[in-house]
């Protein structure tokens, strides 16, 4: 039992990747957790393993989002923390991104976090709680092969900071975690199926990929009283991947 005993937290996109790592970590630190996800099977498995409450939700439907939030808050008995981890990845250049793919990325990565937040705000105002958004390293420095995804995560980062300003007088803190390439990270792809093989990843200067636990411990810090004056902050968890432009050498 750790630093989050007594905190009641809702995690979106908690059934896989970074999100499930967050659910596990928050539970290990003593928080009460409800989490959403698309897969009932993974949701019930993780729920049984961790004691967190799985709430099924379709985050593309605003009415369903309101119902999901009320169900989660009822099961938790209130809300002290919201972690917006649900998202969708799409590997494509902008010129190769269709309207349908673009719309799904914007809907799930930019509109859904807004809708979930809106539904949670009054509960968080009541508790003086905290919001953590899971943005991405691509929000800090976009990637050409993740065109629309980078755009959506940059917009999500902006939403985080706008919310931080307008929520501050309610005592609600809003911060962003920007994970770099994460082993067993994003599994939700716009075009369906599992992650595609794009060859070996470019390693960050730290020499390894991030793990879901790396992002999860940053989230725990930003939910805890240890970060009481952190709001509107952007925390890169990327092993220095985006700390500098690393020149592309052709020789030597």
């Amino acid at each position: 039992m750790g630093s989050l005993v007594g905190l009641r937290v809702l995690v979106t996109g908690g059934t896989s990747g970074i999100g499930s790592g967050i659910v596990e970590h928050l539970r290990a630190e003593g928080a009460s957790v409800a989490f959403t996800g698309r897969s009932h099977r993974r949701g019930s498995t993780l729920g049984q393993a961790t004691g967190a409450a799985f709430v099924a939700a379709d985050l593309s439907d605003s009415a369903a989002i309101r119902d999901m939030v009320e169900e989660a808050v009822d099961s938790l008995g209130g809300l002290d923390g919201l972690v917006l981890s649900a998202g969708v990845l799409h590997r494509a250049r902008l010129s190769e991104t269709s309207d349908d793919e673009w719309d799904k990325i914007i809907d799930l990565n930019v509109v859904a976090p807004f809708l979930v937040t809106r539904a949670c705000l009054r509960h968080l105002h009541a508790s003086g709680g905290a919001i953590v958004t899971i943005a991405s390293g691509t929000a800090l420095w976009p990637e050409m092969e993740l065109g629309a995804y980078s755009v959506s995560k940059r917009a999500l980062l902006s939403m985080t900071q706008m919310l931080a300003v307008e929520s501050a007088h309610h005592g609600v803190r809003v911060n962003a975690v920007c994970p770099g390439d994460t082993a067993a990270g994003m599994s939700a792809l716009v075009n369906g199926g599992g992650p595609r093989d794009h060859g070996p990843p470019v390693m960050p200067p730290a020499g390894r990929l991030a793990t879901p636990a790396d992002a999860a411990s940053a989230v725990a810090f930003l939910l805890s009283p240890d970060s009481a004056f952190c709001s509107g902050a952007v925390l890169a968890v990327d092993g220095a991947m985006r700390a500098a432009l690393r020149a592309h050498r052709v020789r030597g």
Binding site: S95, P142, E143, M144, G147, V151, R154, A155
Partner: peptide
Amino acid sequence: TGLLAMSEVLAAE
């Protein structure tokens, strides 16, 4: 903010 990122990504492409 999203538009500025879009502009940068498109420039690279």
